[in-house]
Design a protein around this nucleic acid. Sequence first.
DNA 1: GGAACGATTGAT
DNA 2: TCAATCGTTCCT
Length: 188
Amino acid sequence: MLQKLFKKDTKDFAQELLGMYLIHESPEGKTIGKIVETEAYLWNDPAAHSFRGKTMRNSPMFGKPGTAYVYFTYGMHYCFNVVTANVGIGEAVLIRALEPIEGIELMKKRRKREDLYNLCNGPAKLVQAMGISKEHNTHFLLHKPLYLEERKKEMFSIVKKTRIGISLAKNKLFRFYIKGNDFVSFPV
DNA sequence: GGAACGATTGAT
DNA sequence: TCAATCGTTCCT
C-alpha cells in the first residue's frame, strides 16, 4: 500500500506521511520516530533542488518513488527526503521532524543532547538522531535497515504553513505538521 | 578557476 | 543575531 502512496500527488503524500513511522535498524541499535512534520518539493518549484534539471547531487529525486534522497548542506548537515512522483519527474518530501518513539537513549547519545524535545525537531537533527548518513542516499525505503511503516491510524488535524529556510516560492503552503504535536521544529 | 550560497544548527 | 563550514552550482 505504501508502494502506491509513493506515486500519489506529492502534496498529498507529504500529508499522508504524517503519523507514519521511520525505522532504522543500525549496528548501534534500533531507533524509531513518528513523522510529525514534512515539506513538499515539486518539479516546477523554484525552491526545489530539482528545479533546474537533473544534476549529480539531485539525481535521486528523479529516481524511483520511495527512495531516499539524502543531501549535504551548509558544510556540515544532512537532510533526508522521500522521493515521490514517477521516475524522471523530480519531486520529494523533506522530513522535518519526528516524535521519538524507540531508541531514545541512542538518539541522545548520537545527538549529544539530553532534551527529548531537541532530538528530532529539525531536518538535520533527526538525521543525526536516527543515524542516517550519505550511505543511505538512493536507498529504497521499504527495505531494511532504513524503512517506513504504517501503524495504527490516529486522528489529528494537519496544519499547512509556508516552508522553512527557503528564499524562493516563500508563499506556497507546502509545509505540513500535526496540530498540537510538541515535537514540531517551528510550531508557527 | 573562482565566487556565492545554501530545504541548518547551536551559541551569543 | 551570528558564526561555522564545505560541496554544488553557476559565472568568467
